[in-house]
């Protein structure tokens, strides 16, 4: 005996998803086709066209400068990347790398403006905070379902799910960074007659840069953590190899692919962190 019958929440959401899918079909199709093609082109044609030795060399040089002319990161990158190629996972690595790059880029492009908006308006902050909490606590698997509904399977829904999961830190840290700029500096800026835009670009954003970069670093890491999950809906890459290992109870293959992800994670993390500390000085 229930006083209130079970609310058909699941149905509502189904209906809403269906409606969205139908209404924005042209948009989703466009993204699926053209953006999908572009991602494929980037991963398969562009990155794969680069000889492995050249790719590793370029990364090594970038690592040398990014880490302030030290050799630790260079050595790690060279050995790590060589190992992945040695294990025959180079193509998977390039796909994963592509997914992470696109997901992070889109997250940052969406996240920074929202963070700024949030910092400028108390109302926006009040509304966005629970939304961000929701986005981050909802199990990441759940995002795969509408992603498939909108974009069927492949790289594009993988990027979509990753963006939802990975955007919050950039928004949060941008907001935090701007709000942390001391009141006196804001007063100083105002006292010289800055417009809102001048204040944002000459004072707030430069001063929040370190914090925003920390947020971006987290966004990239979260995007990477979505790699395995996204491969469940057909996103190619190292994650797929892990899943295959799981399905075939093949510990060795799964572990080696997992190791590849760890290596990529460490390289990307050190790159973004070093970029941050260097510019923050």
């Amino acid at each position: 005996m229930e006083i209130i019958p079970k609310l058909p929440v699941a149905e509502w959401i189904d209906n809403a998803t269906e409606w969205t899918t139908d209404t924005f079909e042209f948009l989703f199709d466009f993204i699926k086709e053209d953006f999908g093609d572009f991602i494929e082109f980037f991963a398969e044609d562009l990155l794969m066209a680069v000889p492995i030795w050249l790719f590793i060399a370029v990364i090594a040089i970038l690592a040398f400068f990014a880490s302030g002319k030290r050799f630790g990161l260079v050595a790690f990158s060279v050995i790590g990347l060589w190992f992945i190629s040695n294990q025959g996972l180079w193509e998977e690595l390039m796909n994963t790398f592509t997914l992470v790059i696109f997901a992070s880029l889109i997250s940052v492009i969406i996240g920074v403006p929202f963070g700024i908006w949030m910092a400028k308006s108390k109302t926006v902050q009040t509304i966005l905070t629970p939304v961000l909490d929701f986005m981050q606590t909802m199990p990441a698997f759940v995002y795969l379902i509408p992603a498939v509904a909108f974009f069927s399977i492949g790289m594009v829904p993988g990027v979509f799910a990753s963006v939802i999961f990975a955007t919050p830190p950039t928004v949060r840290f941008t907001n935090l960074g701007i709000r942390q700029v001391s009141k006196e500096l804001i007063e100083a800026s105002d006292s010289f007659g800055t417009t809102g835009m001048q204040k944002l670009f000459k004072v707030q954003l430069p001063m929040a840069k370190t914090t925003i970069m920390a947020g971006i670093n987290q966004t990239v890491m979260l995007a990477l953590s979505m790699v395995v999950i996204a491969s469940m809906i057909g996103a190619k890459g190292l994650g797929q190899t892990v899943i295959t290992g799981l399905q075939r109870a093949d510990v060795g293959t799964g572990f080696v692919a997992g190791l590849g992800i760890v290596i990529l994670a460490i390289i990307i993390d050190r790159f973004t962190q070093n970029l941050n500390t260097q510019k923050g000085q």
């Binding site: 500096l185 006292s191 007659g193 000459k202 430069p206």
Partner: peptide, 20 residues
Amino acid sequence: RNVRREKLSMVFQKFALFPH
């Protein structure tokens, strides 16, 4: 804004210099 730009300037207790 124009008055602040042209006629008034302020010096602050904790200097309020832009560190970047």
